[in-house]
Amino acid sequence: MFSYFANPVRFQNLCRILVPVLGIGALLLIVPAWAMGLFFVPPDYQQGDTFRIIYVHVPAVIVASLAYAFLAGASFVSFVWRHSLADTAAKAAAPVGAALTFLGLFTGALWGKPMWGAYWVWDARLTSTLIMLFLFLGYIAIRSAIRDEVASTRIAAITAMIGAINLPIIKFSVDWWSSLHQPASLLRAGGPAIDASMSWPLYMSIAGYACLFGWLVLQQMQSELDERRAYALVQRASGRVASKASAQSKGNPDA
């Protein structure tokens, strides 16, 4: 399947269908979900209106984790099979993932203040999300630091895979650490089942964010491919001009 879509023409045909579908899907899912979440869903009996943050917080965190999994998977494919489209996908996914992770942390902090009385707690979920933000930033940093195209691609792929190994280790460590130092977890495990009228907008919002992520990644990939193709055309043209010029200078002994 990977090699099937390695062909840029096939990829472009795929984009022609997927991009509008994902774009319209994101719009039709996120906007109603937010509107329902803000104005139509009844307030939570414990948290009041504050729980409405859930419709921007949970989707951001879930899709950010998906984005890291996607980044690591694409990096693996790009490293092992030298699949250039997978690398383009990884490159496009990293900034989107970083932005979603930041959004998740930001909204989580603002939700945490009224709920737990603190903007930030060092529990496993928060800490590993924060580390994930640093993994995204490290990936972007190392990618832009290495000038050589091939080396930067492959080194960045290795960096993403190291991060994928590291994340579960950190999760485990912080779980261990916080179980030692904190009397009880502040997050309710499971919690009371929420009403269907509250959960539907949440599912819609998650699906919408996922569509938006796909849309952003595909659009960035297409831009990247266009830019590369334009660059290659310019290179070829300037090569032709140069060879013509050198042929002329050889033909003319005075020059």
Partner: peptide
């Protein structure tokens, strides 16, 4: 108006 934590809710949606 989202109750006593209205500003938190509005900032979260606004930043998103």
């Amino acid at each position: 108006d989202f109750g006593k934590n209205s500003s938190f809710v509005l900032i979260c949606y606004g930043v998103s």
